[in-house]
Design a protein around this nucleic acid. Sequence first.
DNA 1: GCCTTATATTTGTTATAACAAATACAAAGA
DNA 2: TCTTTGTATTTGTTATAACAAATATAAGGC
Lengths: 220, 220
Amino acid sequence: MTETIEDVENKPPLHEAIYKKLRLLLETGALAPGQALSLRNLAHSFEGSVTPVRDAVWRLAAEGALYIGPTRRISVPTLSRNQVRELMRVRALLEPEAAILALDNITPEIISQMRAYDAELNKAAMEGNVQEYMANNHAFHFTLYAASNSDVLIPLIESIWVRFGPYMRHAYPDVAGMEGVEDHHAQALDALEKRDAIALKRAIKADIGDGEQFLLHEME
Amino acid sequence: MTETIEDVENKPPLHEAIYKKLRLLLETGALAPGQALSLRNLAHSFEGSVTPVRDAVWRLAAEGALYIGPTRRISVPTLSRNQVRELMRVRALLEPEAAILALDNITPEIISQMRAYDAELNKAAMEGNVQEYMANNHAFHFTLYAASNSDVLIPLIESIWVRFGPYMRHAYPDVAGMEGVEDHHAQALDALEKRDAIALKRAIKADIGDGEQFLLHEME
DNA sequence: GCCTTATATTTGTTATAACAAATACAAAGA
DNA sequence: TCTTTGTATTTGTTATAACAAATATAAGGC
C-alpha cells in the first residue's frame, strides 16, 4: 500500500482528447466555415481509428459546433447573418446572468486576473495578433463566468462561443479598431470593483453588442 | 425519369432512431434520475451493436441529457435543487424571447392548435394522466416556439426540457392542483390574440415559474 | 455478523473489416 | 465548350473482437 508512484498514468480516453483538440480548432478559427471533414481523415490526423473520432464528432454536432448535412456529410457550420444575431441575442441573455451570479463570489484575485487578461488582450490587439486577442478575450469572459459556479450556464455559454469561432479566422488585424471608443471591459472591471450589478450587466451586454457588430461586419 | 416508385426506402441511420427513442424515454420520464445505462444493454434493447448506441449516447451527453461519470459510467443525470432553479432561470430567459419572435409569425391556425393542446392538457390533468399532460404541455409550448423560426433558440430550449424530464416521472396525478389559481396558458393565448408582447412574456415566465415550483416540490 | 480480499463479470474503449450511399472524376456525346 | 454518363474513390454506417478498467460477487478471516 506504499504509494511511491504518483504519476498514475491516468490516461484520458482518446475520444476526449480528439474532442478537445477539435473544439480548440473551432474556437480559434483554425477551421473555416463550410469546410468538410471526414472521419477517416480526422482519425488519421489524430493517429487513431474512426470510433473515438465518431464520439467526438457527435458530441460537437450536438452542441452545434459541427454540422451533419442531410447526406451525413460532416462540415463546419455556416452561419447566416440572422443566425449570428440570434446567437448574440442568446449571449446577451445568458452572459449577464452568469456575470451577476459571479458577482456574489467575486474576489480581488479574480478581478486582478481579469485585468491581466485584459492587458494581454489590448496588447495583442495593438500588435494585430488575432489569435492572442481571441484567447485572452475568451479567458477574460470565462474567468468571470467561472465565478458563478453554475454548471448549467457555463457549458451553455461555452457551446455558444464555439459556434462563431470559425468566423473569427478572417478577423481584421486591428481588432481594437472595431471596439469603438468605449472600453466595455474596463467598465465591467469597474462595475466588479464597485459590486454594481446594473453597471456590470450593461457592460457585458455592450461588449457582446461590440462582438456582434464585429462579426456581422466581418461576414460581408 | 418516370418516377413510379415513391417510397424510396429512405432509411434513417440506426443511431438516429436510437437517439430519438432514448430522448423520448428521457422526456417522458420513463428513465429514473441516477439510473445506470450500459452500451451493451442498450444495443441489445435496440437490436443493434454498440457503435450506433455510442453515437446516440454521446449526442445526448453533450446536451446534458445523459451523464458520463468520472469512471465513464453512463447514467441519467441527477439534478440538485439549485440546478433545477438554474435550468428554470435559463428557460425564463430563452422562452419568452422565442415567444416574442414567434409573435411576428403567429397565425390564427397556430393559436387554435395551441388551444387544442391546452384543452387536451387540462383534460389529462383532470384525469390524472401525467403522461398525456406532459406530452400536451410540450406540444403547447413548442408549437408556439416553432413559429419563431429560430433554429438557434428552439434546439437550445429543447435541450433544456430533456434535462428535467426524468424528474417528471413521479409527478402527482393531480398535476392541475399545482398550477395555482391562475391559468397562465390562457393568459398566453389571450396575449397572442391581442398581439400583446408584454403580456405574453409575463404569461410564459409565470408558467415557467409554476413548472419550477412543481418540480422543486416534487423533488422533496 | 462484519470487514477484507480474491475472483468473476460487466463495463467502456478502440481498431478493424465489410457494406452501401454519396461524391469526384474522366471520358464520351451533343 | 458544355452537358451527360459511367466508373472509381471516398464517405458514413454498422457489427465484431480484443483489451483494460471498474464493478459485483463470493470466499475467507476477524
